[in-house]
Structures are given as structure tokens and as C-alpha cells.
């Protein structure tokens, strides 16, 4: 009995039928035609958000490894390269970097005689990947360093070269320790992809902004936006836990 009343009042509350006039949940009420159209408009940004995040994270995972390995070298020059890259890239806030890449990088290309336009899609991806790579590099470094030195030595004594040692001995062991922080970092990329809205990328946040401008219902629309990110991140988390379980089961030590 109590449950039904509570449900009814929540519904009334959410659909704006209560006596309070400050709520405007009708803008995203799926039962009305406009509300449904609005929801579809907002949710359709999901594809871009996911695509930008996936490509950026993919590049960052490769770039991060390429930056991390010199950091583990016995040669000082390589280690300095790693330190400079990580400290420099890590210190640039995402938004200024996004502006620099989107508005500035094409001019750099032009000065080199290249005509490479950067659209919002690739501008966002380059920025996110660059910015994230400094963090993934540090994650790799910590993960690889956590594998005992004896493993590298044993690999060398059975004739493996550096790349083979990494590929067959060190990385397969390190990956289980690297994966949880890497997944954490991916969630960060998904959230930071919201910045792509300011250069006109039609992703979740941009669409919410545009709808707010026409409907003038910021509270309701941004609430839905937050729920959209929440759902996305929960799905990623579940995926990572599944992956961890799967990887955990085939190592016996």
C-alpha cells in the first residue's frame, strides 16, 4: 500500500504533475511525443561519446606503452625522454590542450606546408589520447616494474631478446596488475570526452547543451545527462570485472 503511494507520488513528482511549478520533467517524459523525441535526441550522442573514448583509449594504450618502455631503459637518454614527456603532457589541463589541438595544430601543419584539417571528432580523439597517454605510461611502468627482475634474467638466459622478453614473459604477467588501473583510466577518458562538446562534437554533453538552449530546462536535461554517463560507466565496470575474472583463471601461481 505504502509502496504504491510512494511510486505514484514519485511519478507525479517526476512528470511535473505535482503542485510545484518549478519542475519540468515533461521535457524528458517518454510518454509524451516531445519528451520521447528529446530523449532520443539526447541518447543518440552516446555513439559519439563511446566511439571517441574507445579510439582515444586505444591510441593511449599503445602510445602509453611506447612512452613507458624508454622509462625502463638502462640508458639515461631514454629515461629522460620518458620523464619529460610524462611531466609535460601530464601538466597540461585538458581544455587548453583541446583548444590548442583544434585551433592551433592545423596552423602548425600549415606552416609546414601541410593541409591537414582537424575536425571536432579527430581533435577530441587526439587530445584525449595525448593527455591520457602520460597516465597510461605511468601505469605500465609501475606494472612492469612490479614483475621480479629474475623473470627478465631467466628470459635472457633462454635466449629471448628484449621484445620477446616483453611480449612473452613480462607483459602477460604485468597485464593483470595493469588492467584495473587502466580500466579506471578508461572511465576517466569517457568522462573527459564531455569536453569535446566545446569544439562542437555532437556527443552526449553537446546534445544536452543544445536541448537546454531550446527547452530551457537545465535541471531535468542535465540530470538525464548524468544518468547517461552513470549507465555507461557501470557497463564498463562490469565489463572490466568480467575480464579480470577471465584473466585471473588461467594463471595458477
Amino acid at each position: 500500500m505504502f509502496g504504491k503511494t510512494a511510486l505514484l507520488s514519485i511519478l507525479l513528482f517526476l512528470t511535473g504533475c505535482s503542485s510545484s511549478t518549478t519542475w519540468g520533467w515533461y521535457v524528458i517524459n517518454p510518454m509524451t511525443n516531445t519528451g520521447w523525441i528529446n530523449i532520443k535526441f539526447l541518447v543518440q550522442g552516446m555513439g559519439s561519446t563511446i566511439l571517441i573514448s574507445l579510439i582515444a583509449a586505444g591510441i593511449s594504450i599503445l602510445l602509453g606503452l611506447a612512452v613507458a618502455l624508454p622509462g625502463l631503459s638502462s640508458r639515461r637518454g631514454w629515461r629522460i625522454f620518458n620523464r619529460v614527456y610524462v611531466e609535460f603532457v601530464r601538466s597540461i589541463p585538458l581544455l587548453p590542450m583541446l583548444f590548442w589541438v583544434f585551433y592551433g595544430l592545423p596552423l602548425v601543419f600549415k606552416s609546414m606546408g601541410l593541409n591537414i584539417p582537424i575536425d571536432p571528432f579527430w581533435g577530441a580523439i587526439i587530445t584525449l589520447a595525448l593527455s591520457d597517454s602520460a597516465f597510461t605510461a605511468e601505469i605500465y611502468r609501475a606494472g612492469i616494474q612490479s614483475i621480479a627482475k629474475g623473470q627478465t634474467e631467466a628470459a635472457q638466459t633462454v635466449g629471448l631478446n628484449y621484445i620477446q622478453t616483453m611480449r612473452y614473459v613480462i607483459l602477460p604477467q604485468a597485464i593483470r596488475r595493469i588492467l584495473p588501473p587502466l580500466a579506471n583510466q578508461f572511465i576517466y577518458v569517457v568522462k573527459m570526452s564531455a569536453f569535446a562538446s566545446v569544439i562542437g562534437m555532437q556527443e552526449l554533453t553537446r546534445r544536452a547543451n543544445e536541448l537546454v538552449v531550446t527547452e530551457y530546462r537545465p535541471l531535468e536535461i542535465y540530470s538525464l545527462l548524468i544518468v547517461e554517463y552513470l549507465v555507461l560507466v557501470l557497463i564498463i565496470s562490469a565489463g572490466v570485472r568480467w575480464l579480470e575474472r577471465r584473466m585471473g583463471s588461467d594463471e595458477q601461481s
Binding site: 629474475g150 631467466a154 628470459a155 602477460p172 604477467q173 588461467d250 594463471e251 595458477q252 601461481s253
Partner: peptide, 8 residues
């Protein structure tokens, strides 16, 4: 001394 077998 520590064998250093590949555990994976």
C-alpha cells in the same frame, strides 16, 4: 636460486 620459472 629462486628458480625464476615463468608462472603464467
Amino acid at each position: 636460486q629462486q628458480f625464476n620459472l615463468f608462472p603464467h
